[in-house]
Computed example of a mutant assay.
Amino acid sequence: MNIVVFDIETVPDVVGGRRLLDLQGLSDDDTAKAMFHLRRQEAGTDFLRHHLHRVVAISAVFRSKGEQIAVWTLGDENADEKTILEKFFHLIERYSPTLVSWNGSGFDLPVLHYRAMLHGVASPTYWDQGREDRNAKWNNYLSRYHERHTDLMDLLALYNNRAFVPLDQMASLLGFPGKMGMDGSKVWSAFQAGDIKGIRDYCETDVLNTWLVYLRFQLIRGDLQEAEFLNELQIVKDYLQREAHPHFLEFLKQWQSAE
């Protein structure tokens, strides 16, 4: 079975903000500030509504048959939002993987839905609820209780938002690295500074944490035995060492120091 663990990073959609909130004539920075201010007045939080998040990175862990694993960010550093979305949904069309996320149902996927609508990005396999594939009626990507998409945070909390846990804390509690050098609140400033690589690297460490937490979940529900679980961890370590990207090596260093 192919498994894709995914995570997205976003910035304010300043073009959409100008259109919807009558902010014409403002710079990107001032538009974003106005969007945050209006949102605070509306809801007491800076967190924008899902449709006003522009996707700037989608990272994935791809685990396929055998001992094959890959970690990467879709598209290159110059890819626009539509290209990034097309590459994500192409993965689904080509491989029909099991999707794994942390809060993907609450944030990542709704954002991807709205942005795919905006750009006209099609994905018949993703949206199928049994019309084309009868089996998809009982196991599809859209149902909260099906396994084509496993939102680990939602499932572990028993679908109770009072029991939600941040990925950083859950990963660290289990002895994995957690956050490394950036968090979601810093993505907009990093984007303004042109640090797209830093955003992509951060997103990749988030999907690595999610994958490791998912492996522990696979252990407790009996899909992996102890020896298999340890072997999966070693596969990740070997991959990080082999690829030798600086953020991979730092992730590995922090992981080993926490063991």
Rank of each mutant, 00 (worst) to 15 (best):
Q41P: 04
Q41W: 07
E42I: 12
G44F: 04
D46S: 15
D46N: 15
F47H: 05
R49Q: 14
H50F: 09
H50Q: 12
L52G: 14
V55T: 10
V55F: 02
A57T: 05
A57D: 06
A60D: 00
A60W: 00
A60V: 14
V61L: 04
F62C: 09
R63A: 10
R63I: 08
S64R: 12
S64G: 07
G66A: 07
I69L: 12
A70E: 11
T73F: 05
T73I: 07
L74R: 03
L74I: 14
L74Q: 00
E77V: 15
E77M: 06
N78V: 07
A79E: 08
D80K: 10
D80T: 01
I84M: 04
I84W: 06
I84T: 03
L85G: 00
E86C: 05
K87V: 09
F88W: 04
H90K: 09
Y95K: 11
S96G: 01
S96P: 03
P97T: 06
P97Q: 09
S101V: 15
S101M: 11
W102T: 03
N103G: 02
G106W: 09
D108L: 07
L109K: 08
L109H: 02
P110W: 10
P110H: 08
V111H: 04
V111I: 15
Y114I: 06
Y114K: 11
M117H: 12
L118P: 06
G120F: 02
V121F: 01
V121S: 00
A122Y: 07
P124A: 07
W127T: 08
D128G: 06
G130Q: 07
R131I: 15
E132P: 00
E132W: 13
E132F: 14
E132S: 11
E132D: 14
N139S: 10
N139A: 13
Y141K: 01
L142Q: 15
R148M: 15
R148W: 02
R148L: 11
T150C: 14
D151I: 07
L152R: 08
D154Q: 10
L155H: 11
L158Q: 14
L158R: 15
Y159K: 08
R162I: 05
R162V: 06
R162T: 13
